[in-house]
Amino acid sequence: MATTAEMAPPQIESATGRGWSSSRLSDGQFATLLTVPVIVALLAIVGYPTAYSLWTSLHRIDLIFKRNEYVGLANYQEALTSPALGHALVVTLYYTALVTGFALVIAVGGALVLNEKFRGRGFVMALVILPWAVSLYATAIVWKYLYSAEWGMFNAVLQGLSLVDRPVNFLSESLAIPAVAVAHAWQIAPLGMYFVLATLQVIPEDLYKAAKVDRLGLFGRFRHVIFPYIKAPLLIVMVLVTVEAARAFDLIFFMTGGGPGDVSTTLTWEVYRVFYKNNQYGQGAALGWLLVLLTTAITTVYFLLLFWRRRERPDTAAAADLTIGET
């Protein structure tokens, strides 16, 4: 049956034909038709829990006695004034800064290498995306095993080379956050690398020649030729990585459990702790909202950056954006 339907000559509806036709619609109407059902469905799925979460954050919930008491903004006040929140914010900032720093170095370094011509370049280019495919929880497990004091690879190598006498405890109080941040950067950097690489590839060859004429060294070339081009994309990658770092949960869950002590208790972990360990639902919801506020704020910056870039440099942005037609 299906085949006959396919083989039938296509019915060509003219714009003035009878009955309903999508061609009669304006761009705006057609767009509304396409988008609104999905957006409404999405909002319906997310909407109720979100509203519920807002409601929860304004109440003191007692699941055992089924008593819910309206407390206004008390949960927010409590959350905002608790020392735990201040600590979690500091940890989150520290962690986010480290992940972003590491990831940018890896992304730019990797992109600069991949922009050179060398044998096996195609292979390396395909290989570097691998960490991005690894889930965050698997990343956490892998790195926990690399860091292990009893049988971890890093300690095996360090001790084999006699660089340390006894195994380093990578997840100790002082090293836990940097150690987790390195793992996160490993996982997240490849996307940034590809993005920066796409930008590097649109830098006109002439600029490199001019740099040669001016006898610029490696650093000078980076400073004066490459950097002006990758400045905007770098900023975008930076903001994107910042959001990802701020919402990191899997890595903390598997690698440190917020510890040792509360050393790696990020905002996400604090929400989890208040919700699930202390069962303070109202305060947990309030904290959750603060967290959403934070990520939304960073995302807004990201979004504005994309728009600003579009306006500032339409030429390079467009060229770096999409070259899929060439493949």
Partner: peptide, 12 residues
């Protein structure tokens, strides 16, 4: 919606 942390809205 792509950037919200799941842990923040998991309880509801």
């Amino acid at each position: 919606t792509r950037s919200y942390p799941p842990i923040a809205i998991i309880l509801p």
